[in-house]
Write a protein that binds this DNA or RNA. Structure first.
Lengths: 246, 246
DNA sequence: CAGTGGTCTAGACCACCGG
DNA sequence: CGGTGGTCTAGACCACTGT
């Protein structure tokens, strides 16, 4: 019954195993708070060494699917701990995870000389040229959720058009599929602010309503800054989740 | 010049090595964006196997001190990525990390029947008794930063007194030193809210000012819920940091 | 006590990067 | 090509848990 590991697959074995185990958890084949087979058992079950087993389990523990207890075993995390958070997601993915249909209304798209703060976050020199700036109203189930302004320093000669953005829906998808740039890490800050009249009218709330301001600098797999994004979320519709460890 | 690893130390070798490397980074012995010695070099430098080396480096990569590039080497992260975030910290530790002197004014401490929401977060049955509730005004450099209400379901017969709390300053310290309970994991949500007149007067702001509301459920090393904490941060003084990965 | 996860070793081969 | 990190093996001993 357990799916097997293909040694010739391009994916590493520990990764294949992690997928198999994660699948067993989602299927309910392994139940919450119940132990999964011990590492020695998995060794013979899947014919891989214990190191590989542990690498797979490490991954799932970090993702919140499993937890270990020394001398007892490895157990399945209860439901609410299974949603991996503190993950770098695009607005689009974020909405999907929340069970909402993501949407957008493009307000602006074009090249501008970056404001000082943006320039610093993008790690650009003072005499840098213009950067791509996109302002969008973001929707969840067709209702305004936030106002997003993002800045990109794309490779020379490359750009993103309004048509592409409308077609793909998500910048992260374009970056990945068109430029092979994968956002892998980001620093984010969250704070509270109040809506200006313009922000309020776009978000369909009253001026002075509280907003959650997120500012994020994202880095590619090559450790280069790829974007600086500012999102103003409606205070009454958005809640931020994080999973903390020590 | 490198500090050595003591095989007889109670700390695992990979952990000792991680400390040595982290120290070298803070000292500036290793500089930002410069490579650290390769894994094979570290193997002979510290007389431990490559597996152990990699375990140490893995730790520092997860903590944001180092990054790897396949085929090139392992490098020191730039300053701003060195502050490990998304870590579970008490208010006290949080303030220290921000360079402020933590303080508190205890408003209430005593046993109450938990409100429904609190009871659910603490995973207690409907007919549970009373739980310990502590309300404190939290200060940073003697200035009000937030209003904290925390709930605990302590082991039978155990409790925390006002005197202990004033002496230790931090609940996490009491939990650790008195009860040997270590908070190791937590789920947190952040949202925006507006100050009620009472909250405003305690925080010395105007009623209706925006606040950042954090709600956190923390788990012990035994995977038991140990606390549910609600903190209302002053919107003008507090900013939340997170480091995201994918 | 036997079984669990935690740490560790000394190898090996691979994919990737630079000169 | 040689050097780097990425993956993997087949062992070993330890600390901890339960019965």
């Amino acid at each position: 019954m357990p799916e097997m590991i293909d040694p010739n697959d391009f994916m590493p074995r520990y990764y294949q195993l992690a997928n198999i185990l994660r699948e067993s958890i989602s299927n309910g084949r392994f139940e919450a708070h119940q132990p999964i087979p011990s590492e020695r058992q998995l060794e013979t079950l899947y014919s891989v060494s214990r190191t590989t087993i542990r690498q797979a389990i490490d991954l799932l523990v970090r993702q919140g699917f499993l937890y270990r207890e020394h001398g007892r075993g490895t157990f399945v995390s209860p439901q609410k701990l299974q949603k991996g958070i503190s993950e770098l997601t695009s607005f689009t993915e974020d909405m999907k995870q929340r069970g909402l249909v993501p949407g957008q209304k493009i307000l602006e798209i074009g090249y501008i000389p970056p404001p000082e703060k943006v320039r610093q976050h993008l790690e650009l020199p003072e005499d840098c040229g213009q950067v791509l700036c996109i302002e969008r109203l973001r929707l969840g189930d067709d209702v305004p959720m936030g106002l997003q302004t993002s800045y990109y320093n794309l490779p020379a000669g490359q750009t993103i058009t309004r048509e592409e953005l409308e077609e793909y829906g998500s910048i992260y998808r374009i970056l990945q599929e068109k430029f092979h740039i994968i956002p892998t890490e980001a620093d984010e800050t969250l704070e509270v602010t109040l809506a200006t009249p313009r922000e309020a009218s776009l978000l369909q709330i009253e001026a002075g309503s509280p907003l959650l301001l997120s500012e994020r600098t994202a880095y590619s797999q090559y450790r280069r800054v790829i974007e600086f994004v500012k999102i103003l979320y409606r205070g009454d519709r958005y809640r931020y989740f994080a999973k903390l460890t020590r």
